[in-house]
């Protein structure tokens, strides 16, 4: 039986250390810009591609065979909720991008269902980003992005693309789904980069 020792107890919530404008929630609100894709694990693939086509691809069993990490992190949604101490398991993007040149500046994450979001390569390397497939010890539920989602917790959570299917390498930054409709190209919660010009 797991025993969790808490460093503090009960009396209200510690809201120091929260990014500006955020409030704490115990829920995990489901946000989605479209229908939840149902992806068969037999057909699931994660691909790293550039302009010339696919460089590398992993099937579901191949992903699970890679070294995985446990991640405990706070998450911050641009709709202003933050959630403390969420637990995930996934494969570091350092592993999945190990064959990629260091001169590639940006990636576009692509999802089943058509969602996209752009990220600087520097923000998905050095232990800052994962392809996560477990949440709180359980397989990641479809409404939270399962079978696998991107996890980039130092940026607003819209960057952690649900139902991720791959990364396209880019020389220059291009806007993804929300970034082309008003949301910030980078999305640092600590600098409150919600919208264009923030």
């Amino acid at each position: 039986m797991a025993v969790v020792t808490r460093g503090f107890t009960g009396r209200g919530r510690r809201e120091v250390d929260l990014p500006p404008g955020q409030y704490l929630t115990d829920d995990f609100p489901v946000l989605s810009a479209g229908p939840t894709p149902r992806i068969s694990l037999d057909e699931w693939r994660f691909e790293v591609a550039d302009g010339d086509g696919t460089r590398q691809a992993w099937s579901w069993p191949e992903l699970l065979a890679l070294p995985s990490e446990e991640i405990t992190t706070d998450i911050h949604c641009v709709t202003k909720w933050s959630k403390r101490g969420t637990h995930w398991r996934g494969v570091s993007l350092d592993t999945l991008l190990s064959g990629v040149d260091s001169d590639v500046g940006y990636v576009m994450a692509h999802s089943y269902g058509g969602y996209t979001t752009n990220l600087p390569m520097a923000d998905v390397r050095d232990g800052k980003a994962w392809v996560a497939y477990e949440y709180e010890g359980e397989p990641l539920a479809p409404e939270h992005g399962g079978p696998a989602r991107l996890l980039v917790p130092h940026l607003y959570f819209w960057k952690s693309a649900k139902w991720v299917r791959g990364l396209r390498l880019m020389a220059t930054d291009e806007p993804g789904f929300w970034e082309s409709a008003g949301y910030h190209m980078y999305g640092d919660p600590w600098r409150e980069q919600r919208y264009w010009g923030d």
């Binding site: 946000l31 989605s32 810009a33 641009v78 949301y183």
Partner: peptide
């Protein structure tokens, strides 16, 4: 879809 960072009509 309005439970999202914006409103999306499909």
């Amino acid at each position: 879809y309005d439970r999202a960072p914006g409103i999306v009509a499909r």
